[in-house]
Nucleic acid binder design. Structure first.
Lengths: 192, 192
DNA sequence: ACCTGAACACCGTTCAAGT
DNA sequence: ACCTGAACACCGTTCAAGT
């Protein structure tokens, strides 16, 4: 009874993960259902909306990023923590094309299935920013909303095939705008 | 004979302009045809693709932006020119939600109807950047591709309803990353 | 030449019918 | 309880038929 339902659910998630990494977040739900070998209505029963499906798909990653922020908060200096976390978040979005657009839309919509995860990521970033600002290593005239906007904007940019090759450098440029490294210290210098 | 065709064409463009400013660039072509009072096939005859329609819709604006760059090149200092032009471009994209995504996709695809206009904007920006770099007021470790990426990324961000209210400030932050104003000179300082 | 309705293959949503 | 096919209202593409 419920055994096959569970099997369907995990099968759907497995297929969706593959398809999403390969073709992006705007694959047709019908296509996912087809490849998973279930009816479309079955998929919609488990995940009534695309966002619900991706919430199940990404919650592990997003929770990990939120926890990672807490780790970095105690492990390294404020500016290094912010920089590392920024990079990891952008790297994550590179894995799933199109999810950053979903996250940007979801983070202010409490009805979205992705709302909670996005809000957690958002406030984790805000904490890192605040700490760096307290140390004077991040510019004072921005807040968590700005940080989230810049991260998602950059995530969107590196989603574009034409900009993807310059991803690392674009991250370098934008983090340079956030961190107020003294000239010569070059906190955000590219390591490659 | 050709009189009604011309009438249809201008009617389609007029309606499309209204609809695009109100509902964004991903309105259905069918809907545009309906509101214009023509058959869908007629719309597709005039503009075989969505990009062709928007090329006709935006070429005036995009050409103006390209010419504006040339004006600024002789009118003001290199850094002010780059800053003003950056702002004008972002302001333009705010008027048509979703076009910046089309532009980002088109600017490396010669088959796109928007390719020429986008390439012109792209190189106009590259010229402004190069001049500022020559004067030492823009950071040397970026190029026209980076500038175009940052502009479109910012244009995408301010397209998002949640980020739109902070548009001016986000522009301030990103231009701060590009222009190497000496501390205290605050070239990119918000004027509001 | 130009326009048009209709057929086509898609999409996501909904629901009655099956076990 | 859970699954499924089918009907529905959309979408963009294509084309034969009309003037």
């Amino acid at each position: 009874m419920r055994a096959d339902a569970e099997k369907n659910r995990s099968q759907i998630l497995s297929v969706a993960r593959d398809v999403a990494t390969e073709h992006g977040a705007d694959v047709s739900m019908r296509d996912i259902a087809r490849r998973a070998g279930v009816g479309l209505a079955t998929l919609l029963r488990h995940f009534p909306t695309r966002e619900a499906l991706f919430e199940a798909l990404l919650c592990t990653n997003l929770d990990a990023l939120t926890r990672r922020a807490a780790e970095l908060e105690t492990a390294t200096s404020a500016d290094e923590a912010l920089l590392s976390w920024f990079r990891e978040l952008v790297t994550f979005t590179q894995g799933y094309r199109g999810v950053v657009a979903m996250m940007a839309a979801a983070h202010t919509n409490p009805d979205s299935a992705l709302y909670a995860s996005c809000a957690a990521v958002h406030s984790a970033g805000a904490r890192l920013l605040l700490r760096a600002q307290g140390e004077g290593t991040a510019r004072a005239d921005m807040n968590g909303d700005d940080l989230f906007a810049l991260i998602t904007a950059l995530g969107w940019a590196v989603d574009q095939p034409s900009f993807a090759p310059r991803a690392d450098h674009l991250v370098h440029l934008v983090t340079g705008a956030i961190l107020t490294g003294r000239p010569g210290s070059e906190v955000g210098k590219a390591t490659s």
